[in-house]
Write a protein that binds this DNA or RNA. Structure first.
Length: 293
DNA sequence: ACCTCGACCTGGGCGC
DNA sequence: TGCGCCCAGGTCGAGG
């Protein structure tokens, strides 16, 4: 559940459960899931620690368990869910456009690699089919904490998202604008879906070079980025709560992606067939008439 | 500093 | 039913 809106939905879904709960036991099942430090050290260090704040920057979850910070990156298929044995487990639902699996609660299965127990039967589960995700437990005084956080740049849903620095970063670059949007230093949290969406909304082709885009067009793009992220967040939240209400299927179709994954289909604005090209090594969908070079 | 490629993994969908 | 191929939200390191 990789891009900013999905990660933020995960963070919010855990808010009612994690803060104040202490880890009594921990299990790490699969050695290939990247956990630092080593699983035995991770387990002994996290035992007895209490969840405090749940933060996020870009796609990185930043959980505070004094005196440690737990940094979680979900990779492509990571899922963090709270499991209450007093509640019923739910089946996985596939996102109509992205294919991402979602559920409110699931039992431990072959893809569940980490379990944190809270002593009351409840647990935090980490499931990751492709195992690209990473869990890092870092002491608050370890300088590596700051270096890890520094790898994540400006999050477009914070007050740090300011036009002048964005303009400067983009216009000095000859890279395709899509590559710039995917740069986590510049737009932390934007991934393939929301890069395509923001470019469509602002009428810019993904392969356009940053240095060739005018100030007004970049202003539009600058505004489109948080706009599409917030729209995704609202849709994610909607389908998630609909799902909680056990009226799943209709709710999960709420998410309307304008271009991502829609190549070969008609553009919602002009009915032209959406094109597919590879930019920055990622599949991109875009509209030849609505998006100008 | 940038690009491209391959690697890391598993599973779903498609054509034959 | 099965096999082979291509595809997928992300990042990282090597080599040009």
């Amino acid at each position: 559940m990789p891009e900013l809106p999905e990660v933020e939905s995960v963070r919010r879904s855990l808010l009612p459960y994690l803060p104040g709960r202490s880890v009594t036991e921990a299990e790490v099942h699969h050695p290939k899931v990247l956990v630092t430090p080593t699983p035995p050290e991770f387990i002994s260090q996290i035992k007895g620690k209490r969840f405090e704040t749940l933060g996020r920057r870009g796609k990185l979850l930043i959980f505070e368990l004094p005196p440690y910070y737990l940094l979680i990156h979900l990779g492509m298929t990571g899922q963090v869910t709270f499991r209450d044995p007093g509640r019923e487990d739910r089946p996985f639902e596939r996102h109509p456009h992205t294919g991402l699996q979602r559920t409110l609660q699931h039992p431990v299965d072959q893809h569940t690699h980490i379990v944190l127990h809270f002593g009351d039967g409840c647990a935090l589960l980490y499931r990751d089919i492709r195992k690209f995700g990473k869990w890092r437990l870092i002491h608050q005084d370890n300088p590596r904490l700051q270096s890890e956080l520094a790898k994540v740049g400006t999050d477009p849903l914070t007050p740090d998202w300011k036009f002048e620095p964005f303009l400067k970063a983009v216009s000095k670059s000859d890279r395709p604008i899509k590559a710039i949007l995917l740069d986590q230093q510049i737009c932390a949290g934007v991934g393939n879906i929301y890069a395509d969406e923001a470019l469509f909304v602002s009428g810019i082709r993904p392969e356009s070079r940053g240095s060739q885009l005018s100030r007004p067009r970049l202003k539009k793009l600058f505004q489109a980025v948080p706009e599409v992220l917030l729209k995704g967040l609202a849709a994610g939240g909607t389908s998630f709560s609909d799902y909680v209400d056990a009226d799943g299927k209709k709710g999960s179709n709420q998410e309307q992606l304008l271009v991502y994954g829609r190549y070969g289909q008609a553009c919602f604005r002009c009915q032209q067939t959406l094109l597919r090209t590879t930019v920055a090594q990622r599949t991109s969908s875009w509209c030849k008439t609505c998006q100008k070079p």
